[in-house]
């Protein structure tokens, strides 16, 4: 019996030190999450204002730009945003599951809406860019064509982290290496709810942008929409609409990617926080049960000893 209680004691010790670790990780994740959520919210203002400008620009006569060009899809680039580290519950597996589903059916990604007509192409080739180590590992392991991986993001990604990706993507789209660029990321809804999502980045389509902005903050949008009907001729573009668009569009792509990275990081930290909280809770339960077992074993040992002594005394009489 004494041996048994010793074993239980040791287990209690190990479980409670694990609990200490998970508790600490929970706290760290919680504070990082707050920061990431703040940043994600702040970026929304910029996205909204940039979108406003694009709306105003759309009132001008059509301008032809490579970034606005919609063409039949042959090559697709998927940017997979995941985390660098593990221990964050089902965060990575959710987004990877979602992505691999569409990677297995490449033709679905090839659907392109050209001026109202749905165009479908076969034999779509997909390349993957991994943001975060887990996604890159997944692509490598499963034999997908991983063209680049970015694994040095900070906890709250900023524009400088995004720039290499966006520049690469923009260049390749303009050079027609890819006909469609999709970003797979985890959308942050709340600390307990995150959803894996695929979003089209290029070509820039109005519907997608509108969706993105309604997701970003419906209240904000509704509040500031006393639609002033400005006449087109009232608007001045310096130097001209073409070059204004040339600066605005890449920024929009950057903002979208930044937003995806920020949402993903907010989701990662909250997923980790929840996972760690569950682990701590489980540890508390386990310790309680082990304590009960330990006390039972101790009591059993005492009872047995008394019985032995009583038995011995009875034998002497």
């Amino acid at each position: 019996m004494a041996v048994n209680s010793k074993v239980i004691k040791r287990r209690i010790k190990s479980v409670s030190s694990t609990k200490k670790i998970t508790k600490a990780m929970e706290m760290v994740a919680a504070s990082k999450m707050r920061r990431a959520v703040d940043t994600a919210l702040r970026t929304r203002t910029y996205a909204k204002l940039a979108w406003d400008i694009l709306v105003d620009l759309s009132k001008t006569p059509e301008v032809k730009l490579p970034l606005l060009e919609v063409r039949p899809v042959k090559n697709v680039l998927v940017i997979l945003v995941t985390s660098n580290r593990g221990l964050c519950g089902s965060f990575n597996s959710n987004i990877i599951k979602k992505t691999s589903l569409s990677l297995k059916n490449p033709d679905n990604l090839g659907v392109q809406d050209i001026e109202g007509k749905i165009l479908k192409t076969d034999n779509v080739k997909i390349d993957v860019v991994g943001v975060g180590r887990k996604g890159a590992d997944f692509a490598k392991r499963n034999g997908y064509n991983l063209t680049a991986s970015f694994t040095t993001f900070s906890d709250t990604p900023n524009l400088n982290d995004i720039l290499p990706i966006s520049q690469m993507v923009l260049k390749q789209y303009e050079e027609r290496v890819y006909d469609k660029v999709v970003v797979a990321y985890t959308d942050f809804k709340s600390a307990i709810a995150q959803t894996a999502k695929l979003k089209q980045v290029l070509p820039i389509s109005k519907i997608d942008l509108e969706n993105m902005l309604t997701e970003l903050g419906e209240e904000d949008l509704k509040k500031e929409k006393p639609v002033v009907d400005e006449k087109l001729s009232d608007y001045l573009f310096e130097p001209n609409p073409q070059s204004v668009l040339e600066t605005v569009l890449p920024r929009l792509v950057e903002t979208q990617l930044l937003q995806a990275a920020l949402e993903s990081s907010a989701s990662e930290h909250s997923a980790r926080m929840m996972a760690m909280r569950n682990a701590s809770d489980a540890a508390v339960d386990m310790i309680a049960e082990l304590n009960l077992n330990f006390n039972k074993a101790r009591q059993a040992a005492i009872t047995q000893e008394i019985a032995e002594i009583a038995g011995g005394a009875a034998a002497l009489e």
Partner: peptide, 19 residues
């Protein structure tokens, strides 16, 4: 400072988009 030189904006300026 804009790409076409520095501009100064006063209230009731006409709508403008610039780089």
């Amino acid at each position: 400072p804009t790409s076409t030189g520095e501009i100064t904006v006063l209230p009731n300026h006409i709508p403008l988009v610039s780089i």
